[in-house]
Amino acid sequence: MTATLPTTTAPPIADRRLLTSTFAILGIVMAVWGARMPAVQAAAHLGPGRLAVVLLAAAAGMVAGLQAGGRLAHRHGPSRLLVAPTVTFAAALALLGQCRTLPSLVITAVVFGAAHGVLDVAANSSAVNVQQAYGRPIMASFHAAYSLGALGGALLAAATAWLPHQVLFAAVGAATALTALAALPVVRSATHLDHSHDDAPTSDHRPARTSRGHTWLLGGLAAACLLAEGAAADWASVHLRSLHSSEAVAAGAYALYSCAMALGRLFGDRLTARYSPTTLVRTGAVLAAVGLGTGLAIGSAPAALAGWMGLGLGLSTAVPALITAAGRGGARTVGTVTTIGYLGLLTGPAAIGALAALTPLPTALALPAILAATVAAAARRALEPR
């Protein structure tokens, strides 16, 4: 079975390049912010509890931004939301580097998270429209750009560790804002692809009616996938250290997971077109569940590294496929599905920590494997609704 999409006119190459850079920018900024978090903590003299408040503020802002972004993109079209939130996102990053008190960090973190949320919905909804215009799967390539951007941002932060974090944040923020402003002409020309707002005329691109249950199913599966991503980010290295690995090997666990996910997304569109989204997501989710489960069961460092790589490769195309399915219901559905998904990312690591307090760590880390199996079981119902 081959996944096909209806075409309209010539593929909007400039729009695709714009969105590829937008996804890459999201990855770069978030990686730089996360990698230099200890410097932010030290500059404001924050203990772990107060740092958690800052992170909670950013998460709350992001959830609010995701919901607002869905409504705004539904009403005005997602491409109109690509520039202003990017500039706000960039300015907030630069300001976070200057904050020296908890209140200033909390306020700025809320703005940072909200801009991230709005931009995330706008980028994904615009990606659905551009994919529709191309007439073939390209969503995974956008998410690959995010993964590669995050990898590049992490490398940039490591290479500039000698720089004060406020200088790095200001430089990345300025470059991001200038890139967004330079893209204004392309954004203006991209508005013709916005078919998801209320005033859209009846056409083949008009959003299909999506039931509340189907929206929640898509969101739940996205949450399962992003919980696994959060688990890899926060617990993969801890898992390797518990197996008596060196710090270098432990640190490499998440790097291998990220590289496997980026690799899967780079080839994901081609495989989706050949085998269908359902087949690819189900096969990948089985690989993720079996790979991580086997790595946890064997309990050796090489098996664990292979397991985390299997998790990243197996789930690499799941979120792009779920976002594509959500896009059939318009930007508001994308916003809802993305919000539910990010709740999995934000709460997952804490849930695993709570389980680890009650059970051995490998048992707690079986949660992502179980959820990957759930994704495999529910993929057809989610991606091929009646």
Score class of each variant (00 low, 15 high):
G220K: 00
A222Q: 04
A222E: 00
A223N: 02
A223K: 04
A224K: 00
A224E: 00
C225F: 03
L226Y: 14
L227Y: 01
L227R: 05
L227K: 00
L227D: 00
A228T: 07
A228D: 02
G230C: 02
A231V: 14
A232M: 15
A232N: 11
A232V: 05
A233H: 03
D234T: 07
D234S: 01
W235F: 06
W235T: 03
W235K: 05
W235E: 02
W235M: 04
A236Y: 08
S237I: 07
S237V: 03
V238W: 01
V238R: 10
H239P: 01
L240I: 03
R241K: 14
R241L: 15
S242N: 10
S242K: 02
L243W: 06
L243H: 02
H244L: 06
H244M: 06
S245C: 04
S246G: 14
S246V: 03
S246T: 15
E247A: 15
A248E: 12
A248C: 01
V249Y: 01
V249P: 01
V249S: 07
V249W: 01
A250L: 03
A251G: 15
A251E: 10
G252N: 14
G252W: 06
A253E: 05
A253D: 00
Y254I: 02
Y254Q: 07
A255F: 12
A255K: 00
A255W: 07
A255S: 15
L256Q: 08
L256P: 06
Y257T: 00
Y257E: 04
S258D: 06
S258Q: 14
C259Y: 11
C259V: 14
C259E: 00
C259D: 01
A260T: 14
M261N: 09
M261P: 11
A262E: 04
A262P: 13
L263S: 15
G264W: 12
R265F: 09
L266R: 05
L266K: 09
L266E: 10
F267Q: 13
F267N: 02
D269W: 11
D269G: 11
R270I: 11
R270N: 09
R270S: 14
T272D: 11
T272A: 13
